[in-house]
């Protein structure tokens, strides 16, 4: 009898889990395997092209210093954008979680999530219109500023950072909001009753308790930003050559899928290594 129950339980577990595993297989495992395979061959095996297994795609990264330099540039961009997202997102999340209640909070939430609902390409082109010389920002500032201004941010690194921060800020706001929401107001009241000023409360109570959420948000921003290519290309113009754009070129322009796949895997490895190196520091922040 007991065996029978265990058997039906196992069957039920398999039945319930199978959609998830199917999804993982189709959406993660198969594409990754295909990429891993592409990264170790000489040419894409479409039609009657000749191909054989090689490690050249990976050694190419080491042979030219350009790739490493671009990767470093992308990682620094990731650090910059993540830091800005945290600096802007955390106070926003604090206001949403602790200072605003009811309908106003819903309305603000909608505004936070709104960027998710618009097409990212449209969003980036809108920024291009806003940031270019003689564009929306330039004209507005000229109209309200008493002295003449000449502001042309388009095709600068600032434009790329602005576009990326705008795209990824909601991740930080939402994760930090959830973390702050979980902090009981009475903890803050208790700290105040013990004589703590707001910065002590922030440093000793609020930041340690919300660190897990903040870190999750930072990782959610950092990883895609390091590999980003659309924002650098459109908002960065001639300056917009990053590691992500090089990978994109291999796939859509040069049609060198094997090199693109190998560069992608190197990026994946570097990002994982950075997160692993940072994890002791991050874990310490949590306790």
């Amino acid at each position: 009898m007991a065996g029978g129950i265990a058997r039906t339980d196992r069957l039920r577990a398999i039945a319930l889990l199978s959609p998830a595993y199917l999804w993982l297989t189709v959406a993660v495992f198969l594409p990754l395997s295909a990429m891993a395979f592409f990264s170790i061959i000489t040419d894409v095996p479409f039609g009657d092209t000749e191909w054989h297994v090689t490690g050249e795609n990976y050694t190419a990264f080491l042979e030219s210093p350009t790739y490493a330099r671009l990767l470093l540039k992308s990682v620094l961009l990731g650090v910059k954008v993540t830091a800005l997202c945290v600096l802007i997102g955390f106070p926003c999340a604090w206001v949403l979680a602790k200072m605003i209640k009811g309908r106003a909070r819903e309305a603000l939430f909608l505004m936070v999530i709104l960027p998710f609902w618009s097409n990212s390409l449209v969003r980036i082109f809108s920024w291009a219109i806003v940031l270019r010389g003689n564009g929306v920002l330039d004209k507005t500032l000229s109209a309200i500023w008493p002295w003449p201004v000449k502001l042309n941010l388009l095709f600068t690194e600032s434009a790329i950072v602005i576009g990326l921060v705008h795209s990824y800020l909601p991740y930080v706001i939402l994760t930090a909001y959830l973390a702050l929401q979980a902090i009981d107001d009475s903890l803050i009241e208790a700290a105040r009753s013990l004589g703590a000023k707001w910065w002590t409360i922030l440093w000793r109570i609020v930041l340690p308790l919300s660190a897990p959420g903040l870190i999750a948000g930072a990782v959610l921003v950092f990883v895609p930003v390091v590999g980003s290519f659309m924002e650098p290309r459109i908002l960065g113009g001639r300056l917009g050559t990053y590691y992500g754009t090089v990978i994109e070129d291999q796939f859509v322009a040069v049609f060198n899928w094997p090199l693109g796949a190998a560069l992608s895997f190197i990026l994946l490895a570097v990002v994982l290594a950075i997160l692993a190196l940072a994890s002791p520091v991050l874990r310490k922040a949590r306790t």
């Binding site: 208790a190 105040r192 009753s193 004589g195």
Partner: peptide, 14 residues
């Protein structure tokens, strides 16, 4: 609050 020199015990202890 922080300058009132009070001690407070909260319902959930906080």
């Amino acid at each position: 609050v922080e300058a009132r020199e009070i001690g407070m015990v909260f319902q959930n202890y906080a």
